[in-house]
Design a protein around this nucleic acid. Structure first.
Length: 804
RNA sequence: GCCCAGGUGGCGGAAUUGGUAGACGCGCUGGAUUCAAAAUCCAGUUCUAGCAAUAGAGUGCGGGUUCGAUUCCCGCCCUGGGCACCA
């Protein structure tokens, strides 16, 4: 018997696939399409680790399965190549990001090819390629032209010692990860896209998507729709109003103070009216020094300054002191909060700190009507109104509507729908990204780069070392910065900020559809047929950022008339996380496991199946290599089953076993339960080694294993004299009649405990089954312990007796 | 703190959503083969007692519904993930 040589066989078939262009999808084909997409990787120096394989292997198996089901499957691959790590690597080693990235891409392509996935390499994309980011810039211009891109002052984390802007992940405990200095908040003019304009559509669109409920829920929370009311409070003695958004107007009789954010308009406008200007000025300055993260990390202790001003509650004429405090953020809501300390924990904490009045207006289920003195008594949900004039006695939900009507009627408030979703701030003060295609002219002001001048290429002569202050390192390239105005041809300067890498990844699924096209970002007709993506597979960590950005971009492009659909991803699956010793794999933890040595030793088919065999695809798990030999043995046994002659002992039994196998493997793959699909095939191989197999059974087995072990299947298929390629053969079907056995073995229970078993026809009558069960000596023994009061028979499942 | 998942042998995991818990694989034990080992093949393997038939216990813990619960209900504990001064 000849052993199965995995390496030789796998390399052989990879070469044949490559040569025959087996995996190049014909995007103009009229066959029913299936766009099977995995989230593209970031080309890091870590190379691909087992987590990538855990994702890509099963995703490819799914694509192969769909292909055998008769679809024209398109499976592209590319690289999300811009980003921080390459830039940091450059700062550390002096190697230009384009060089290190190119090298990483090369290694990863080599690794990816070794998996043997059916990637269509002709359509590969690399987001740092000028031919790609040209269109990322084009996308920016479309947003700009259509009023969805705008500039505003926004705050960033700034390290005064490194003189550079930091990403959130570079800030540790409010300190710069590199030099440990305190990180500051700095306001810079930055570009944003109006995602908030699409809040309601992003929310509504979720309804029809075949996504995990968990992910939809996360997006709903992220978008954060709430129905509330803006209430206006007159400021005592001034011609001024404070507007506050609240979802809890029902508690407004319990309002005792107002808090405004240090950066709010109110503070700027009314500064001269404040009692202790110095204290407020000082407080605002201190708050400005803190980064957002620092402000959060400060703990639960509340601080603030009394402005000396009062606001009037129009409900009851109450005068409420106005405070400035940093627990209120200017960019959330209206930047002002009405303090209801009896029914909001944060307000309660602030009131305790400042010794402000606390009024109870809600009685909870416990019926406690006593004054609120401790945080535990703060009643936020459920209850009945008290001390609230005309609302007294109403449940919260009813009181909410009644008071909204009242406030609107009296004209000191208006119902509004509010969303937490903010606009997408996409300016980055970094080198390794797509330059924002805007020019500032001395005469004409802000001018968009004409589309014919794209791409705005990244310069070679830039100094990317961090010393540019609050500007991007691109500022150091004269050649880049200095340009002429496209309008007047006068002296002008380029925008030096680059775009968030999420912009690059927000539209790549469209570029794949025509990655060689130099005239257009994609072929409109091809996109019309191939979008939306039928299956999108990637990590759950992208539930809110990437998956909202991509949906937003698709909707915007649809509105501009460039695409026919407004949702990019029809079905979404998250693969599970593979950990090592319980921790996420990362270079810093030094626990990255490389797949390479396992692939070399056992082959990629074995490695892929082993990862699948770990458990359900969506679960993930902790990596260890114990047990990989089990899959290697299985592959050997499978190979022997195919090449060795055997004698069939029971032809009917074999036929039934094959039909059962087809049913199980089909069902398991449909559910993405690859682990049990492999187990079913193992069981069949065990069965075959005892009972023999014929050629037709062999053929079906090879087809069933083809999505899971593509190289092995191809070799077996050829050995059986079948026509290349197995992935283009039709997925086997089964006959439901042959899956059900004529006889079944049933357990016999006495008072719920199994006391024996009987074999009966699958549709045996109750009397017959009960009679047979009564003949079992052990059952009889337990029946004799009392009187049988009930007989139970569930055909195909169980026989039971109740004895008393 | 809030919102999701999840907790099953020595290990990874199965169980047709109320019907014989532990499929499949790893590991372990014994046997065959071999001068010997590796590899391979065969048998066994939840725990306790027993030579065995069998009995008792058993799906994180405590209750409940039911002839019967890993599955349904109530209360707790633990682990993983997400969000967090968001008004």
């Amino acid at each position: 018997m000849s052993k199965y040589d995995c390496t030789k066989t796998e390399l052989k078939w990879q070469k044949i696939w490559d040569k025959s262009k087996l995996n190049s999808a014909d995007l103009k084909s009229s066959k029913k399409k299936y766009y099977n997409l995995v989230m593209f990787p970031y080309p890091s120096g870590d190379k691909l680790h087992v987590g990538h394989w855990y994702n890509y292997g099963p995703a490819d198996s799914w694509g192969r399965y769909m292909r055998m089901k008769g679809y024209s499957v398109f499976q592209p691959m590319g690289f999300d190549a811009f980003g921080l790590p390459a830039e940091n690597y450059a700062i550390k080693t002096g190697v230009h990001p384009s060089k290190s990235t190119a090298k990483n891409v090369e290694t990863m392509v080599k690794q990816l090819k070794r998996i043997g996935c059916m990637y269509d390499w002709d359509k590969m994309v690399n987001t740092s390629d000028p031919e790609y980011y040209k269109w990322t810039q084009w996308l920016f211009l479309q947003m700009y032209k259509n009023g969805l891109a705008y500039k505003k002052l926004s705050s960033v984390n700034y390290c005064p010692s490194c003189k550079t802007v930091l990403a959130n992940e570079q800030v540790w405990d409010g300190k710069c990860e590199r030099c440990k200095s305190d990180v500051q908040n700095k306001e810079l003019e930055q570009w944003s896209w109006r995602t908030s304009k699409y809040s309601q559509r992003l929310l509504d669109g979720l309804e029809d998507l075949d996504w995990p409920e968990k992910t939809k829920l996360m997006q709903r929370n992220w978008i954060g729709r709430s129905e509330g009311i803006d209430i206006y409070y007159d400021v005592d003695g001034l011609d001024e109003q404070i507007s506050v958004y609240t979802t809890r107007p029902d508690t407004n009789f319990g309002a005792t103070f107002i808090v405004v954010a240090p950066e709010s308009e109110f503070v700027k406008k009314n500064f001269d009216e404040f009692k202790d200007k110095k204290a407020v000025e000082e407080y605002v300055r201190e708050a400005g020094k803190k980064s957002d993260i620092d402000r959060i990390a400060e703990g639960r202790k509340k601080t603030g300054v009394d402005t000396g001003l009062f606001a009037i509650n129009n409900l009851n004429g109450k005068k409420m002191p106005i405070y400035v405090s940093d627990f209120v953020l200017a960019h959330v809501g209206t930047g002002c909060v009405v303090g209801v300390p009896g029914h909001d924990i944060r307000d309660f904490e602030f009131a305790k700190e400042k010794d402000l009045e606390i009024v109870r207006v809600v009685v909870g289920d416990d019926g406690d009507k006593s004054p609120i003195e401790s945080a535990e008594q703060v009643q936020e949900e459920n209850g009945t109104m008290i001390n609230s004039d005309f609302l007294d006695g109403l449940p919260i939900m009813e009181a909410k509507e009644k008071i909204k009507d009242h406030i609107e009627k009296d004209g000191f408030g208006k119902r509004v729908v509010n969303y937490k979703l903010r606009d997408w701030l996409l300016s980055r003060q970094r080198f390794w990204g797509a330059p924002i295609p805007i020019i500032y002219c001395d005469k004409c002001g802000e001018v968009a780069v004409p589309e014919k001048d794209l791409p705005v290429e990244l310069p070679e002569d830039v100094d990317y070392m961090p010393k540019g202050g609050e500007k991007s390192p691109l500022e150091t390239s004269k050649k880049f910065v200095e340009t002429n105005c496209p309008k007047c041809n006068g002296k002008a300067r380029r925008e030096v900020d680059t775009m968030d890498t999420f912009v690059c990844s927000s539209w790549y699924y469209l570029r794949y559809l025509d990655s060689q096209n130099k005239k257009d970002p994609w072929d409109k007709n091809v996109a019309k047929n191939w979008m939306p993506v039928d299956m999108y597979i990637g990590g759950p960590e992208h539930a809110c950022m990437h998956l909202i950005y991509a949906r937003f971009v698709m909707m915007a492009l649809h509105d501009f008339g460039y695409v026919s659909h407004d949702e990019p991803f029809l079905k979404l699956i998250h693969q599970g996380l593979v950990t090592k010793s319980g921790a996420k794999m990362s270079k810093s933890k030094g626990n990255v496991v490389s797949p390479d040595e396992f692939v070399e030793k056992y082959g990629s088919d074995v490695f892929r199946m082993y990862l699948m065999f770990m458990g359900p695809f969506t679960d993930g798990g902790d990596w260890n290599d114990r047990g990989i030999t089990g899959i290697a043995r299985f592959v050997e046994r499978f190979w022997s089953m195919i090449i060795e002659k055997s004698e069939v002992k029971d032809a009917d039994g074999l036929k039934r076993a094959v039909h059962k196998l087809v049913k199980r493997v089909t069902r398991d793959i449909e559910k993405m339960h690859f682990n049990t699909a492999v187990a079913a095939l193992m069981e069949f191989v065990n069965f075959a080694s005892k009972n023999g197999v014929d050629d037709s059974a062999k053929k079906i087995c090879v087809q069933l294993i083809a999505p899971l072990a593509p190289h092995l299947a191809e070799e077996c298929w050829e050995t059986l004299g079948q026509k290349y390629s197995v992935v283009d053969s039709k997925w086997p079907t089964f006959d439901e009649k042959l899956v059900i056995d004529d006889t079944v073995v049933l357990g016999v229970q006495v008072n719920g405990k199994v006391r024996g078993e009987i074999e009966v026809a699958k549709d045996a009558k109750q009397e017959d089954a009960i009679a047979l069960a009564r003949k079992n000596p052990n059952v009889l023994k337990h029946l004799s312990e009392g009187k049988v009061v009930k007989e139970i028979y569930v055909p195909g499942r169980i026989v039971g007796f109740v004895v008393k």
